[in-house]
Amino acid sequence: MSSATTGALLPAGDLYPFEPAGVTRDPGRSRSGPAERGADVESAQPGAERDAVLAISGVSLRFGGVTALADIDLTVAPGEIRGVIGPNGAGKSSLLNIVSGLYRPSAGHVRIAGVDFTEVPTQRLAHLGVARTFQNLALFGGLTVLENVVMGLTSTIRSGPLGQVLGLPAARREDAANRAKAEAIVAFLHLSGVAHRPAGELSYGLQKRVELARALVARPRLLLLDEPMAGMTATEKQELAAFVREARDTYGTTIVLIEHDIGVVMGLCDRVAVLDYGRKIADGTPHDIAADPLVIDAYLGVAHDADETLEIEEAV
């Protein structure tokens, strides 16, 4: 069974029933130690972390007795495409859910655009310049493609319900402007042909692309993509990869990409972090990662992922 289908069958959560003993951390990576937590974070930050669009430090996540994430550090520099890979259940999605405030970390903090959070306020996420897509389709099926994309601008809306209902000039101008922005993104992602179709009726690949459009329309500083290519055909994957790269190049968006398909990640990302059993076991350029014995172990250790290791080698 290929890993892509496994990913589709399993539920979205990244939980492993037990925490493996004796998994060693990658010793070579710089990280702020747990001792710094709660201390004066500002002064303790190394330079790279202060400039980072996103800095995760010492984040752990436990559900009851199960540890989904253990002491994770991750920094994302402006304008980079940052990959996070790992086998099923490694904790990749949990990490994104913490960054978007859907999960509250058991320890550690998340720094977004210079503001520190122990729990990210989901409601303010868009205001912070963060947008995300979801592993499972999360479009609003009852709205058209264009309306879905317009929804991506919700956080910028200033007019109230009454103004909208009465059609006051300000509300109308705002609506027209938002529609224009949405149409531009829709065209950018080659979705104009389906712009007025209900989103729920589209094919899986197209829906994924609409989600990308909805996330991009507000020009986020930081875009979190949770397995955007899961379940896609090879052609669709290549297309979407091209769109992601183009989005970065055109809008300067910083991107965190969680992906199962290692080939795509290696070709697309500037830096890649590897999670296994909730721990970060490697972090570096795609080239470094592919050569890292811990990474190869992690992937070879999971039988169904063997073919992906081959993909790593091919991709680099």
Binding site: Q123, L125, G142, V150, S155, I157, V165
Partner: peptide, 29 residues
Amino acid sequence: WRLTRAQTGRNFIAVRDNQTAARVIGVPV
């Protein structure tokens, strides 16, 4: 009818169709 065609109406549908996604986008759920 006007309400359903406006942003507020779209917010209604967003909350109905996917509350989590709506929250992430900034819909005041």
